[in-house]
Simulated assay, not measured.
Amino acid sequence: MSDYTKIVVGTDGSKSSMLAVQRAAAIAAAFDATLIVGCAYYESEEQASKTLRKDSVTVLGDDPAQRNLDAAAEAARGIGCSKVETAIKPGTPVEALMAIVNEHDADLLVVGNRGINSLTGRLLGSVPADVARQSQCDVMIVHTVS
């Protein structure tokens, strides 16, 4: 296995996603890798209402998304990760994370497990399951909720 040089982690500001940020930051610090913290947001209520996943947190607008990123970047630096970048993208969490992974040519994507074991997640898909299927890089699903 080669070292990871670019690690992407998604956050929506929730406690669960911040646990994934902490795990990704620890891995990035260990590999001296760049951590790219990403956050998706919806540009309108209409776009947000089209999301069928009831297990996800909806971030409406880029201001709340930027606040989530700032808090996550600060937490990552507190873990000891010195190379932290942020990326903000409109769209669904899966679309945004895949765009960030591809744009940064990431080696590893870290996400929390929220939604993966829910009924909705099993029927319609979940962010962790969907990114694992679509990603061209390694994916780590962190146990953040029971």
Rank of each mutant, 00 (worst) to 15 (best):
R114Y: 06
D32P: 04
G38C: 11
N68P: 00
C81Q: 03
V59H: 01
K83V: 10
D12W: 03
G78F: 00
V131P: 00
P64I: 07
L108D: 01
D63Y: 06
G78A: 05
T58C: 03
T5E: 08
T51M: 12
G115Y: 06
G112Y: 05
S118F: 04
A72N: 10
I79K: 10
G78D: 01
D70I: 08
P90N: 14
N102Y: 02
V110W: 06
M98A: 11
R67T: 15
G78Q: 06
D32N: 14
A72D: 01
V9A: 09
M18E: 03
L119G: 05
M98T: 13
V59Q: 00
T86N: 08
D12V: 13
A65W: 02
D55Q: 07
V9Q: 03
A106S: 13
M98H: 06
C39H: 07
S16G: 04
K89V: 14
A99I: 04
L108H: 00
T58I: 15
D12G: 06
A48V: 09
G112L: 13
D107G: 08
Q136N: 14
P90Y: 02
S16K: 05
D105N: 15
E46C: 05
E45Y: 10
Q66I: 09
A30R: 12
D12T: 13
I141D: 10
D62H: 13
Y42R: 03
E85L: 13
V94L: 09
T120Q: 08
V111P: 00
V57P: 01
L97P: 07
Y4Q: 01
A26F: 04
M140S: 12
R133D: 09
S135K: 05
D138I: 02
V94C: 11
V131N: 12
K89Y: 09
C137Y: 03
A96S: 13
R114L: 10
V110R: 07
A96R: 08
A25L: 10
V21M: 08
G125Q: 12
L124R: 10
A129G: 12
L108F: 03
P93H: 11
P64R: 05
A87M: 09
A106W: 02
V84I: 14
A40E: 01
V111G: 04
G38Y: 01
S17Q: 04
S44W: 04
L52D: 05
P90G: 10
R67M: 13
Q22W: 00
N117T: 14
L123A: 15
R53P: 00
S135V: 10
A76I: 08
